[in-house]
Design a protein around this nucleic acid. Sequence first.
DNA 1: AAACAGGCCTAAA
DNA 2: TTTAGGCCTGTT
Length: 274
Amino acid sequence: MSDILTIKRPDHFDLDKIFDCGQSFRFEKNGDGFFEGVAFGRLLRIGQDEKNLYIEAAEDEYENIWKRYLALDEDYGKINEDILKHFECDVIKRAMEAGDGIRILRQDPWETLCSFIISQNNNIPRIKSLVSAVCRTYGQSFESGGKVYYAFPGEKDILNAGEAGLKALKTGFRAGYLISAAEHCLSDTDLCRIRDEYTYEQGLEELCRIKGVGPKVASCTLLFALGKWSAFPVDVWIKRTIDKYFGGRLDITSLGRYAGIAQQYLFYYERTLQ
DNA sequence: AAACAGGCCTAAA
DNA sequence: TTTAGGCCTGTT
C-alpha cells in the first residue's frame, strides 16, 4: 500500500544534488525521473519538479521517517546564513551557490558506518556495487510492485555472514573492519546513543575505537547519520580544496556549528568543477 | 605496467 | 607524535 504525497518543494532542496553529493550510495534515478532506494528497510520513491516534491512511500511514513531523513524539517536558508556569518569568504559563497539544494540526510547510523568503512580506497561506483552486494546477499528481502528489494543487513546479519562471507563479495581487507564494527555496536555503544547523548567530539572518539574506523569514516557517520553537523570529514578532495583555496590551512571551528554542511558544499563544488 | 581510488593499521623513528 | 608501507580489488 502506498500513495504519492505531494508537498511544496522548499527552497534549497534539490534531489539531484542530495543523491549525487556522495553522502549515500543506495538511491538511483529511474527513467521516470524518480529516485528510488531503500532506507530503514523501507522503499522510498521520490521525484520533484519546480513546484513540488512527490513522495511515494507507505502511508504515514512521511511524518515518521522521510521528513527527517530528507532534512525537510530544517531551514537551510538560516543554516547558510549562519555559515556565512561565521566565515564570510568568496570561496564559501561560490561553493554554497554551486551546491545550493544539497541537504545532509539523516541516514541509518549502522548502514552509514558500514558504507563508509567500505568506501576506504574505493571509488564511488565500486562502493555502490559493494554495498549493493552486501544487501543482496545478507539483507532481508521484501517485495513491492513486483520487484524485490533488500534492506541493509543488521549487525547480527553481518556477524553471521562472517569475515569469509564478506570477503567472498570482494570487500577485501574491509571485511574484518565490518565484523569489528558489528561487534562494537552490539556489545559496546549503540550508535543511537551517540546520536542522542554524545557531543560531536565524544562521538568521534567513540567511533574511532572501532578497528578500521578512523577520523574520516567516523566523521562521515557523525555527519550523514548522527546529526552532528559540526563533523568535518577530510578526504582527498577536501584536502585539495584546502590546499588550493586556503593555503593548506583551515580552522574548522571558524566555520561554526554547521561546518560539516559547509564541507559538503566545498566538496561538491570542487568535484563538479572539472 | 603501474598508479590510483572519498583510509586505516602497524611498525619504526 | 609523526611518517612510510602495505592492504583487497578493479580500473585506467
